[in-house]
């Protein structure tokens, strides 16, 4: 019998799992809060790492980091295990489910049958919660879906042992002990400190706002360097990383704005509300980039719209983010 587990749909899988697990253990935390405390926001452009032969651009921190940071910043004890052997991994899952403990899993999207086929790519850092078993299937709270789903055992075993980049190796995690009360304010500040210094204080050209500028420079050169067809494929890939399911829109910028809004209430400081509004405007700027990029992909860009114009939109995003994260960094480090 599945235990009662409150499934709430969220924009991003890992912050959603974190929020739902904490809520189950008696500490309701919104997804946006989990995303902010876990310092989920980032920008990174790594042209030498290829995904489907296309350069990696990321709008979020490394998979696994949100859950790890949230639990450690709030003093929550967790247990994490990974496995070499699939049957041992499934047996361990069965034991915990039988004990009524909801378990977080890292899985490969390609093997999850309930996913819309068009989204089934080899992406191995998808998080979900197993909260029960019925016959030969598991009851799953997959945070990016509106309702709980069911997944046959064989498929889930396959997804837990997906191969390739970020292979999950059967990774599972659960909460073992909660603190008496959650002290949100210092955790929020730590999360903001981390994101703002990654975005503007890392003197490395591929990370943070510097990374956005490097991407802008690369985008400008794509048509000449790669030819029209490949340039468009590269552009479409960036748009997918920014807007595909799991981002909440605008490359996670709107989730972060929601977090800043909530943070202003917890901290009782209206200045964070102002920064939240600016973050929303930045999310809209990113969406403008996706719209203009999509016009290129369709071949409907006007004659005056070139890849340089796309690069300029990116530079505008970088300018606004530099200003915002500098202000945020100054505010939180005072």
């Amino acid at each position: 019998m599945p235990i009662s587990f409150l499934h709430r749909q969220s924009a991003h899988c890992e912050s959603g799992v974190t929020s739902n697990l904490l809520t189950h253990h008696g500490a309701p935390l919104s997804e946006a809060m989990a995303f902010g405390i876990g310092a989920g926001l980032l920008f990174g452009y790594f042209p030498f790492i290829k995904i489907n032969k296309l350069p990696l651009a990321t709008f979020r921190s490394a998979p696994g980091s949100i859950f790890q940071r949230v639990t450690s910043r709030l003093g929550i004890r967790v247990e994490r295990r990974s496995f070499k052997n699939p049957s041992a991994a499934m047996a361990a899952l069965d034991r915990m489910v039988a004990d009524g403990i909801p378990v977080g899993l890292q899985t490969g999207v390609y093997w999850l049958p309930y996913f819309p086929p068009a989204l089934r790519f080899h992406f191995n850092a998808h998080n979900l919660v197993v909260y029960g078993a019925e016959g030969d299937a598991y009851c799953i709270s997959d945070p990016v879906f509106p309702d709980p789903v069911v997944c046959p055992r064989a498929d889930l075993a396959r997804a837990r042992f997906a191969r390739g980049a970020l292979a999950p190796q059967g990774k599972m995690y659960c909460i073992t002990a909660m603190p008496k009360s959650l002290d949100l304010a210092p955790a929020i500040k730590k999360g903001i400190q981390q994101v703002s210094s990654m975005m503007v204080k890392v003197p490395f050209p591929l990370i943070g706002t510097r990374g956005i500028r490097t991407l802008a420079k690369a985008v400008e050169k794509w048509p000449r360097r790669l030819g029209e067809r490949l340039a468009i494929l590269h552009l479409g890939h960036i748009i997918r990383m920014q807007e595909e399911i799991g981002t909440g829109g605008g490359g996670f910028r709107f989730i972060y704005a929601a977090f800043l809004q909530e943070a202003s209430e917890v901290l009782g400081d209206a200045r964070y509300l102002d920064l939240s509004r600016r973050m929303t405007a930045i999310g809209d700027q990113w969406r403008e980039f996706a719209l203009a990029g999509a016009r290129h992909c369709k071949g409907r860009a006007g004659a005056q719209e070139s890849f340089s114009d796309l690069a300029n939109i990116l530079r505008a995003c970088a300018d606004s983010e530099t200003a915002l994260f500098n202000d945020l960094h100054a505010l939180v480090n005072r």
């Binding site: 748009i239 997918r240 807007e243 829109g249």
Partner: peptide, 17 residues
């Protein structure tokens, strides 16, 4: 939190892949 059935630029990029 507002439900969405998808956004055209994201759909287009997906179909292109």
């Amino acid at each position: 939190l507002a439900p969405s059935t998808g956004w055209e630029p994201a759909n287009l990029a997906n179909l292109q892949a």
